[in-house]
Amino acid sequence: DKPVLAIQVLGTVKWFNVRNGYGFINRNDTKEDVFVHQTAIKRNNPRKFLRSVGDGETVEFDVVEGEKGAEATNVTGPGGVPVKGSRYAPNR
C-alpha cells in the first residue's frame, strides 16, 4: 500500500486524457498538481462507459505517495457523489 499523505482533499481537474486514462488535479489547499489515473476514480458517472473526470471539474480525493510523487486515489465528486466525467467519454 502507498503511504497516505492527505484525505478528503478538494481540487480542480487541470486536464484528463480519456484515451490514455490519466490526468492531473490541482489541489485547492496547496495548489499542487496531483497525478490521477482512471483506476483511482471510485464513483464514476453511471451514464459514462469509461471512468473519467472532466476538465475544470471539482473533485474530492485522498492523496498517496506514488512512485513519481503525489497521486490521487478514492476520487469522487464533492461529498462522495459520483464524478461528472469528461465530455469526451462515451455515454452508455
Rank of each mutant, 00 (worst) to 15 (best):
V4L: 14
I7F: 15
V9A: 13
L10S: 11
G11C: 12
T12N: 09
V13A: 11
W15C: 11
F16L: 14
N17D: 10
N20Y: 10
N26Y: 12
N28K: 01
N28S: 08
D29V: 08
T30I: 13
T30N: 10
K31L: 13
E32D: 08
V34I: 12
V34F: 09
V34D: 11
F35I: 11
V36I: 11
H37Y: 14
H37P: 07
N44Y: 10
N44S: 09
N45M: 04
N45Q: 05
N45D: 09
P46G: 06
P46K: 09
P46D: 07
P46F: 05
P46T: 07
P46L: 08
R47P: 03
R47E: 14
R47K: 14
R47M: 14
K48W: 03
K48E: 08
F49A: 15
F49Y: 15
L50S: 09
L50V: 12
L50Y: 11
L50K: 12
L50W: 13
R51K: 13
R51A: 10
R51D: 05
S52I: 02
S52N: 05
S52K: 02
S52D: 06
S52T: 09
S52Y: 02
S52P: 04
V53E: 00
V53R: 00
G54P: 02
G54V: 05
G54R: 12
G54W: 01
D55G: 14
D55W: 06
D55L: 10
G56S: 06
G56N: 09
G56Q: 06
G56H: 06
G56D: 06
G56R: 06
G56W: 01
E57F: 00
E57L: 01
E57N: 01
E57P: 00
T58I: 15
T58P: 10
T58S: 10
T58N: 06
V59G: 01
V59H: 01
V59F: 02
V59A: 02
V59M: 01
E60T: 10
E60N: 05
E60V: 14
F61S: 01
F61C: 02
F61K: 03
F61M: 08
F61D: 01
F61L: 02
F61G: 04
D62I: 00
D62V: 01
D62A: 03
D62G: 02
D62T: 10
D62R: 03
V63H: 02
V63F: 00
V63R: 03
V63N: 00
V63S: 02
V64G: 02
V64K: 06
V64H: 04
E65A: 15
E65F: 13
E65P: 06
E65M: 15
G66W: 01
G66M: 00
G66R: 02
G66T: 12
E67K: 15
E67V: 15
E67W: 12
E67T: 14
K68H: 12
G69D: 03
G69S: 04
G69H: 07
G69A: 02
G69N: 03
A70C: 14
A70N: 13
A70Y: 15
A70E: 10
E71W: 07
E71A: 09
E71P: 00
E71G: 02
E71K: 11
A72F: 01
A72W: 00
A72Q: 02
T73E: 12
T73H: 15
T73Y: 13
N74W: 03
N74G: 03
N74I: 00
N74Q: 05
N74Y: 02
V75E: 03
V75H: 03
V75L: 05
V75T: 00
T76R: 09
T76P: 00
T76M: 06
T76Y: 01
T76D: 00
T76C: 10
T76L: 01
G77L: 06
G77S: 04
G77P: 02
G77N: 02
P78S: 02
P78L: 06
P78H: 04
P78E: 05
G79D: 11
G79M: 09
G79E: 09
G79L: 09
G80I: 01
G80V: 04
G80R: 05
V81F: 09
V81P: 02
V81W: 09
P82Q: 07
P82M: 06
V83H: 00
V83T: 08
V83Q: 03
V83M: 01
V83C: 08
K84W: 06
K84T: 09
K84G: 08
G85T: 02
G85M: 01
G85S: 02
G85H: 02
G85W: 04
G85A: 03
S86G: 04
S86W: 04
S86L: 03
S86H: 11
S86Y: 01
Y88G: 06
Y88M: 08
Y88I: 05
Y88F: 15
A89P: 05
A89H: 06
P90Y: 10
P90D: 07
P90C: 09
P90K: 14
P90S: 11
N91E: 14
N91M: 13
R92Y: 10
R92G: 09
R92Q: 11
R92C: 12
R92N: 13
